[in-house]
Amino acid sequence: MEVRTIKVFTTVDNINLHTQVVDMSMTYGQQFGPTYLDGADVTKIKPHNSHEGKTFYVLPNDDTLRVEAFEYYHTTDPSFLGRYMSALNHTKKWKYPQVNGLTSIKWADNNCYLATALLTLQQIELKFNPPALQDAYYRARAGEAANFCALILAYCNKTVGELGDVRETMSYLFQHANLDSCKRVLNVVCKTCGQQQTTLKGVEAVMYMGTLSYEQFKKGVQIPCTCGKQATKYLVQQESPFVMMSAPPAQYELKHGTFTCASEYTGNYQCGHYKHITSKETLYCIDGALLTKSSEYKGPITDVFYKENSYTTTIK
């Protein structure tokens, strides 16, 4: 009895394709271990004539594949690729409408935090270190965002349907971005203890939790000093293409032309909904596939993004 075979390709990165001759009487799992086709788990399936010449994702289970996976995804987590594939199996079914010149995501599976993050990423200057993220990001900007969303979920250790947080998501993504040249110098002034300067680099240099107003941050924000008295913390120097200011959701007025974009969060910790506000020729609110415009805006804002380049204080 002759062994019926077909020729397929296996890959971990969709760049390096490895030619395989597979036995049609055995499952993919018996031949390769966990195997995925377009995100779908085909591990328990036997090869079919229609699979001839198709590319299958496999887990990096030998040295060659491990090197290829690390170079593309910059992670050695053995569960990463499987999590990416199972997320992709959902995100490829989502709709990605162009809204006001940006790629958004039609609401499904509690994905409003991903839509808000995706919209924000198209408006701030950011370059990702893992080629996987950078490639998928370019495709997302062009309207094909399924891979990018699935990668975000995998890097953030999230599953489809789980509630997510924009600030946490951005923080994970910033860790995989090139923020080497970003720098922030802060000064804390206390009447009792004097003053202390701190220099922050990388992710810490672009994120701040405690106030939404970048102007206020430049002037000074009140913080408790270690001595128990009130101290003032203010920005001395900022070198970065953008800054992200966050605070627990509270009524906040966004003035046209003073910011790049913002995240609105309605609801409580267990259950809520994100919308995205962007400042173009007027203010726009993007909620999944829905767009509304207004000249002014007041609502429960939790993150505001500002364009920056270089700032030095005039406070002496």
Rank of each mutant, 00 (worst) to 15 (best):
P300K: 08
L179Q: 00
V221C: 02
K183Y: 03
E204S: 09
G220R: 03
D38G: 11
G194C: 14
S79R: 11
T11V: 04
V22K: 04
F80A: 03
F128Y: 08
V160Y: 02
F242R: 02
V166S: 00
H48C: 11
T282M: 10
Y113M: 04
P60N: 10
G164M: 01
A108K: 08
C190P: 04
V160F: 00
A40I: 12
D41S: 13
A247R: 02
A108I: 06
M209L: 11
N129G: 09
S171T: 15
M170Q: 01
G228R: 06
F128S: 05
Q230L: 15
A136F: 08
H276L: 03
K44V: 14
T313L: 14
E296A: 14
P224V: 15
T19E: 15
F305P: 01
A117D: 03
E264S: 07
T103Q: 08
C193G: 08
D303P: 00
K191I: 10
L88D: 04
L179W: 05
Q122I: 00
G33F: 05
N16F: 05
K95S: 15
C149M: 12
D135I: 09
V8R: 06
T282R: 05
S213W: 03
T232E: 04
C112W: 01
T91P: 06
T64V: 14
A146H: 07
L102M: 09
L114H: 03
T27Y: 10
Y208N: 03
V189G: 04
H74V: 02
N187I: 08
K201L: 10
K280I: 08
V188K: 10
N157W: 07
Y252T: 11
L186H: 08
M245Y: 09
Q238K: 03
K280S: 10
Q251H: 14
L121E: 02
G267P: 00
R167F: 08
V203T: 08
K93C: 13
H48I: 13
N129Y: 04
T192I: 11
Y274L: 04
A205P: 03
T159E: 15
E239L: 08
A247G: 06
R141C: 14
I286G: 01
K293L: 09
N157Y: 07
V12S: 08
L186D: 03
T43H: 11
S213V: 01
E264Y: 07
L235E: 06
L59M: 11
P248N: 05
L151C: 02
A205G: 03
Q222F: 03
Y137D: 01
A146V: 06
C193P: 06
P60W: 08
K46P: 10
A87Q: 14
E253G: 00
L153Q: 03
G53M: 13
V243P: 02
P78S: 13
D135S: 11
P249F: 10
S263R: 00
G257D: 07
L212P: 04
Y73H: 03
Y265S: 01
T120I: 12
G143P: 05
M244G: 04
T116W: 00
L163M: 11
N49G: 13
M207V: 06
P300G: 00
N49E: 12
P224Q: 15
V8W: 00
Y311H: 09
S79P: 15
F305K: 00
M26Q: 15
G164K: 00
N129H: 11
D135M: 09
L133P: 05
Q196A: 10
R83H: 06
V12M: 14
K93A: 10
A146G: 00
N268V: 00
P130I: 04
F70S: 09
C285R: 01
V185P: 03
T312Q: 13
Y155M: 01
E308D: 06
Y208C: 08
L126R: 05
P78D: 14
W107Q: 04
L291N: 08
Y214E: 13
T116L: 02
G220K: 00
T91E: 04
H74S: 02
K201A: 06
K158S: 01
T211A: 06
D38Y: 09
K280F: 11
H256D: 05
Q251D: 15
M207P: 05
G288V: 02
N178C: 09
Q196T: 14
Y297M: 05
M209H: 12
Y214C: 05
G82D: 12
N100C: 15
E162G: 00
M85G: 06
V206N: 00
I301S: 00
S310W: 12
G299E: 07
Y234M: 09
V221I: 15
T198Q: 14
I277G: 00
G29Q: 10
S171D: 04
C271A: 13
E162A: 08
G272P: 09
Q123E: 06
S240D: 01
R141W: 08
D77G: 03
M26S: 15
I6L: 13
C225P: 01
K219A: 12
L119M: 07
E296C: 13
D63G: 02
R83D: 03
G161F: 04
F9K: 11
A145F: 02
Q195L: 13
N89G: 13
E168Q: 11
E125Y: 05
Q237K: 11
E2A: 11
G143K: 04
W107A: 01
Y306W: 03
L133S: 03
I286P: 03
V203E: 09
N157D: 07
A87Y: 03
K307W: 04
V236E: 05
K106P: 07
H90K: 15
A250D: 13
I15F: 10
T10K: 12
Y137T: 03
E281T: 03
T292Q: 08
L114D: 06
G257Q: 01
K275D: 04
C156S: 10
N147G: 10
R4T: 15
G272D: 06
T76D: 10
V21M: 14
N129W: 14
V3G: 13
S279G: 03
G220C: 01
Y72N: 10
T159K: 15
G101Y: 07
V189D: 14
V8L: 10
A140E: 00
E308G: 04
T192D: 12
K95V: 15
C182N: 00
T192E: 13
V67Q: 14
K280M: 15
G272W: 01
S171H: 15
L119V: 02
P224F: 10
F259Q: 05
D62K: 09
A140K: 03
N89W: 14
V160Q: 04
L291A: 12
L118Q: 00
V22L: 11
P241R: 07
Q175I: 03
Q98I: 14
N147S: 12
H74Q: 13
V3K: 14
K307T: 15
Y113Q: 05
T91R: 08
M245W: 00
H176Y: 13
M207E: 00
A177R: 03
E68D: 08
A150F: 05
F242A: 05
V189E: 14
S263F: 01
